[in-house]
Amino acid sequence: MDNNFIRTEIIEGLQKLFSLRLIGSPAEDILQVTGETWIVAFSKKTEGWKIEDEGRIEKAFNLILADIERWPSPKQVIALIPKRKKPTELAPPKFTSEQIAANKKRLAETLKIIVAKMEMTK
């Protein structure tokens, strides 16, 4: 699975933070190293992420941008990553009384065959 979106979201988030010129911002000449360090810091949290997780890191950075006055630690941003969306639950199937009766009959017939084969092996 290609998780380039994780790297992209971290780098873009750091660029936004850097543009704010916050207290404690890294120097421009070490920004690339800072990005690589943040990617490593996020790696445990993002292990096993899929394309459905795209946008979660971006949301965390956007949340912190509104309230931050000092350069944050990776831990602060990681804490703001929203939970994964739950998949949409399917409604249970609806069977007609005829379908229920047919299924019960088929199940009874299958059970008879199994019992007969078990008796033959005795």
Rank of each mutant, 00 (worst) to 15 (best):
M1V: 06
M1C: 03
F5K: 00
I6A: 00
R7S: 05
I10D: 00
E12L: 14
G13V: 07
G13P: 03
G13A: 12
Q15E: 13
K16G: 12
F18H: 14
F18S: 04
R21P: 06
I23R: 14
I23T: 15
S25G: 06
A27W: 03
E28P: 13
E28F: 13
D29K: 07
I30M: 04
Q32P: 02
V33W: 01
E36A: 09
T37Q: 03
T37M: 00
I39S: 06
A41E: 10
A41R: 11
F42E: 02
K45V: 06
T46G: 03
G48A: 12
G48Y: 13
I51W: 08
I51K: 15
E52F: 04
D53E: 13
E54T: 02
G55R: 09
E58K: 04
E58Y: 07
A60V: 03
A60R: 00
F61C: 01
N62C: 09
L63C: 03
I64M: 05
A66H: 08
A66R: 12
A66M: 14
D67M: 14
E69A: 15
R70C: 14
W71N: 06
W71S: 11
W71C: 05
S73L: 13
S73W: 07
K75T: 13
Q76A: 12
V77C: 02
V77L: 10
V77Q: 00
I78V: 06
I78C: 02
A79D: 10
L80W: 01
I81G: 00
I81Y: 01
R84L: 03
E89K: 03
L90C: 14
A91L: 11
P93Q: 05
K94E: 05
F95T: 09
S97A: 14
E98T: 13
I100S: 03
A101P: 01
A102K: 04
N103K: 15
R106M: 14
L107K: 02
A108R: 09
E109P: 00
L111M: 10
I113A: 10
I114G: 02
A116H: 05
K117E: 15
M118C: 04
E119S: 09
E119Y: 07
M120E: 12
T121R: 12
